[in-house]
Design a protein around this nucleic acid. Structure first.
Lengths: 226, 226, 226, 226
DNA sequence: GATGAATGAGACTTCATTCAT
DNA sequence: TATGAATGAAGTCTCATTCAT
């Protein structure tokens, strides 16, 4: 992502945004392997332009992820402002995150982007903002006694990563319906007074940060993506 | 998969099995795009042999999925036999399914295989056996009053599909730990007396079957994969 | 190069010179394939400006070559004025030409420029001036009895073309050292009383001129370059 | 180069040779940037085949260089066997090396290959054989009193690298003629009793070896090539 | 005039799959 | 039947050059 194009010429900035929008659409539709050309075409620019703005596929993914995080954080802040308590905000925030298109995007983006989330650039900033917000909500909800306390913010983050996953091959309607339904089941599981308290160590924000920090390059871990 | 595997010469059958094992390993490790050559190498055969046994990539995937389903079903039957009630069996079954390697495999295979699950071949049979087992457990647990009744077997299937998903970029240990933890949260959410009863229509086995039936080919649906 | 450079606005002329200087540096460092953008950047101008001044890559190369020839000729004239005899001037002239940076530049430029050397523009003029100077020196040295007479000026020109060649992959120091050393060996070979008189026809200035004249365009002769 | 294909299937080996021959021809004609496709076409195979045999451009270059070195060494050994003294063998060896096609090839190959010459594979072996031969000849000639002693084998190697260079844009006949002529001048310069003894340190075989050893990757030195 | 954005052709590679040995 | 060689389509990326600002 780098620079996020602070001082781009008007036309360049316009193109940059069109590219991000197009990429978001194409990636959500066709998955992470969508050809760059298709994205370019959809944005109404040549491949060259796309590559000038985003030197490689990863840079593009980072750009899209950045824009997504910014949007999500804004959404969350609004929820926080408008809901009476932390749990309410968390619920609403998670529901918004679980919207189909967002979920698809996260699914596609995450694998290619994890290693950059920690870095210093704007992406890191956006990521920490989002993470901080989530942390506030989780801790708040736990303090209110609304949420079980054997889970850390890291747990919730990972659950989101897992939950927003779009089940492949499922048509839009079913996908949407199940996403909503399962989120509710999960929310129920998150409530205080679990039947069986977890004995393993909660995954806290810090641990996840540390982990991301450590990730090396050239690491083709199983991604489930391909 | 197709009818294969019935009357093969001993060595051919041995090859077939080595290929499936190798594919399972490679796919779990390197994701859905692992080169066929790598799989062949790992199985200790030439690509040619691989292709003689599995005419194309999808056939191979189906073969691996078949073997996985068979194993899972056996596991489930055992749980059913050994646990005192249906809920106990379901819990145990889900925990076994959530083992890391299995989860990775499902993540990788599912997208490429959904469209064939319904077909008539051995894969369909294996799939229906697995599905029937799950259905017994779910209905049983609900009848026992241990599980909430606003969920259908289809819901649970999809939850499995989602939950077994491996979070990309996460190291083995964290991945394993979170998988276990989140499963427990989910199980808690599955218990009777939900805080908020779901109002949308449960997803029943039948609906999912019907859906799969309908899926068309050439359809590059969002896969979240690739 | 073409007629350029006569009546330009002061700033335009300044730009032109900065571009030539930058190109000389970049080409000597990164070879003939250096991106135009890099050259522009180094000159502190936009690509657009570069292209306004030099319509295409060849034009730029011609410009750089022109400036090089002019400098070399001036150097040679000075040697002629200051050395007592023609051989002395020739030696000094060749040694100056063999300076590392000059050598690298010639290596890079020559292939792309040969076909234009004869043309009428300023480049041709500069080239003929340089060539005339060399001719004077060679003939003078032979008349003095200091140099073998079975070589023509064309031979010497080609030797320069070959000798100034930078050996790829060699670090600066070794490159410089060998350049100097080999020039001395060559000079020794140029001296009168060769052990074995050459029997083939000397290559005279005229023959080389004629040849250059004849070169066609679109001719991707072996360049050894690229 | 690696393996040089010891145990390749008959057809594969045949193709490998055709590819090397085609590459030698194309590279000599069109320079180092010749498209891989052209080489493949000329060899009568698909690009894929070319890439299976030589994983990348450099591997191909190494293969061609290897075959060239082997041929040159054989030639030199023959000269050594048939000529009465070391100087005679050296002369003949250099003359054969300076044959036009060989010279063009060396020009093109060398830059892309220097860094691998030292490595252990077959290329290194071939290189050391060639180098050892040259060393014998040079030392022998110096011992005989036929060659000046202020030059090391490394000097001669570098002279070859420079001298075999094809002057770009020159038609075959002129190129050939000047190559022969200049070699004679150089040989004359190599003879004993130089007019001016070189004062800088001779470049010995060892020094050149050491240097090559040291070369790092990713080093885009001025190559004069491309 | 200067700038730097946009374009698009073309090079390099990688595999899935077919086919000769 | 097994093998591994050959094919060629498809995707990524780079730059020379043109053009809007």
């Amino acid at each position: 992502m780098t620079e996020e194009g602070a001082e781009l010429r008007a036309d360049a900035r316009r193109n940059r945004e069109r590219i991000i929008a197009a990429a978001a659409a194409v990636l959500a539709e066709r998955g992470a392997d969508a050809p760059m050309e298709e994205i370019a075409r959809r944005a109404g620019v040549g491949v060259g332009t796309l590559y000038r703005r985003f030197p490689d596929r990863d840079a593009l993914f980072r750009g899209v992820m950045h824009s997504l995080l910014v949007r999500l954080t804004a959404t969350g802040r609004r929820a926080q402002a408008e809901e009476p308590d932390a749990w309410g905000a968390l619920e609403r925030f998670l529901r918004e995150t679980a919207k189909l298109r967002t979920a698809s995007l996260i699914t596609v983006l995450r694998p290619r982007v994890v290693r950059s989330l920690q870095a210093d650039g704007e992406l890191g900033v956006a990521r920490r903002a989002w993470f901080g917000l989530l942390d506030e909500m989780v801790l708040g909800a736990q303090r209110e006694g609304a949420m079980r306390t054997d889970l850390g913010t890291g747990d919730v983050t990972l659950m989101i990563a897992v939950f927003t996953r779009r089940v492949p091959g499922l048509p839009e309607d079913l996908a949407g319906r199940s996403l909503e339904r399962h989120l509710e089941v999960l929310l129920d599981g998150l409530r205080a007074t679990p039947r069986r308290v977890l004995t393993s160590e909660p995954i806290h924000a810090a641990e996840l940060e540390a982990e991301a920090m450590r990730s090396h390059h050239g690491d083709h871990q199983v991604t489930g993506s391909s």
